[in-house]
C-alpha cells in the first residue's frame, strides 16, 4: 500500500511537472490576451532541442539552455504573427504544432540519421545531494531537478501576478487593451513578454520529457501533454495555484495510468491510456459555464492591421 502511494506520488510529480511548466506559461500568455493552443508544439521542439543540445555538448544543462532558446524562438514567431500582425491565434498555434513536429522529424534524420528517436544523450541526474535529509531524503533525492526548478517557477509566476506592477499590467492588456493603451501602456510589448515567458516555461516542460525523465528524444513523446496543459489553464481559471493544481491533477491521472498498467489490471491498456484525456473532458464539462468566461480580450488581435470590433 505504502509502495503504491509512494509510486503514485513520485509518478504524479514526474508526469505532472512538464504539464505544470507548460500550463503556467500558457496561463501567463493567455492572461496577457494571447492564446496559444500550440503549447504541444513548443514542448515537442523543446524536447528535441534539449536532446540536441545535450548531445552536442555532452552536457544535459546545455540541453536545458537549448530547449529554452527554442521555446523563445517558437513563441517569438507566434508573437510576431499574432500580436504584431493580428493573425488568428488558434490557427497560428496549429501551424506551430506542424512546424515543430516537422522540424524535429527532419532534424532527427539530418543530425542523427535516424527516424523515430535520437541516440541516447546525457540526462539530468536526480538530486542525490538531498539524500542526507532524514525520512523523506530518499524520496526527495529520486526526483529530477526539474521538479525543484518548477517550484521556483511557480513562485516567480505567483509573485509576478500577485505582487508586481508588471503582472498587473499583463492582466490589464489581456482584459482591456484599449484602456491599457490609453493609460500609456505598451500593449504589444507586454503581450510579447507574456508569450515569450510561455515559451521559456514550455521549453522547460519539453526539456524535462527528453532529458529529465528520459535520456533521448522520441517522436510523439509529448503525446498531448501540451493540450493537457491547455486544459489545465482553463480548469485552473487562470489562477497560478489553480493552474498548478490542475496540471498536477492531470499528472495524477497519467501516473494512475502508469500504475494500473504496472499492476496489470484486466482492462485493455488503450482504455487506461485514455484516462487523462477523458478526465480532461469530464472536468471541463463539469466546471463548464462559470469558469469558461475567460480573459475578456483573450484571443482578439489588437493591431492596426485588423479592424477592431
Amino acid at each position: 500500500m505504502l509502495n503504491a502511494i509512494s509510486y503514485l506520488l513520485s509518478a504524479t510529480l514526474r508526469m505532472g511537472t512538464p504539464i505544470a511548466y507548460t500550463a503556467l506559461g500558457g496561463m501567463t500568455s493567455e492572461r496577457s490576451g494571447v492564446n496559444n493552443i500550440g503549447l504541444e508544439g513548443i514542448m515537442t521542439a523543446a524536447a528535441f532541442g534539449a536532446a540536441v543540445g545535450s548531445y552536442l555538448f555532452q552536457n544535459a544543462w546545455m540541453g536545458v539552455v537549448f530547449a529554452i532558446l527554442i521555446g523563445i524562438a517558437i513563441s517569438a514567431v507566434h508573437s510576431l504573427v499574432c500580436i504584431t500582425w493580428g493573425g488568428t491565434q488558434a490557427v497560428s498555434s496549429m501551424a506551430l504544432v506542424l512546424l515543430s513536429t516537422g522540424i524535429s522529424g527532419v532534424g532527427l534524420k539530418a543530425l542523427f540519421g535516424r527516424q523515430g528517436n535520437s541516440p541516447e544523450v546525457p540526462s539530468l541526474p536526480t538530486t542525490t545531494p538531498l539524500e542526507g535529509i532524514p525520512v523523506i531524503g530518499e524520496f526527495l533525492s529520486q526526483q529530477s531537478p526539474f521538479v525543484y526548478l518548477l517550484l521556483l517557477c511557480l513562485l516567480i509566476t505567483w509573485f509576478l501576478f500577485r505582487h508586481t506592477r508588471l503582472g498587473l499590467r499583463l492582466i490589464t492588456v489581456g482584459e482591456n487593451p484599449k484602456a491599457a493603451e490609453t493609460a500609456g501602456l505598451n500593449v504589444h510589448r507586454l503581450r510579447y513578454f507574456g508569450v515569450i515567458y510561455s515559451g521559456i516555461l514550455g521549453g522547460l516542460g519539453g526539456a524535462m520529457l527528453s532529458i529529465g525523465s528520459m535520456n533521448m528524444f522520441q517522436e510523439g513523446m509529448v503525446a498531448g501533454r501540451g493540450y493537457l496543459a491547455l486544459g489545465a489553464v482553463t480548469m485552473g481559471r487562470w489562477n497560478t495555484w489553480g493552474v498548478f493544481g490542475s496540471a498536477m491533477f492531470f499528472g495524477f491521472f497519467s501516473a494512475l495510468q502508469l500504475y494500473l498498467q504496472s499492476i496489470q489490471v484486466p482492462v485493455p491498456t488503450e482504455f487506461i491510456q485514455m484516462i487523462p484525456y477523458v478526465a480532461t473532458v469530464i472536468v471541463l464539462a463539469l466546471s463548464a459555464g462559470k469558469s469558461n468566461a475567460g480573459i475578456a480580450a483573450g484571443g482578439k488581435p489588437y493591431t492596426k492591421f485588423v479592424q477592431q470590433r
Binding site: 514567431v77 504573427v81 499574432c82 504584431t84 500582425w85 493580428g86 493573425g87 488568428t88 490557427v91 497560428s92 496549429m94 501551424a95 506551430l96 504544432v97 506542424l98 512546424l99 515543430s100 513536429t101 516537422g102 522540424i103 524535429s104 522529424g105 527532419v106 532527427l108 534524420k109 539530418a110 527516424q115 488581435p301 493591431t303 492596426k304 492591421f305 485588423v306
Partner: peptide, 27 residues
Amino acid sequence: AGISQNMIDVLQGLIIVFLCSEHVIRY
C-alpha cells in the same frame, strides 16, 4: 534527396504561418 518526409509538415506549417499573416499582406 535524403530529407525526411516530415519536411512536408514543416512546409504546411509555414504555409499556415504566412496565411495567418494575411491581414498584414492585405494591408
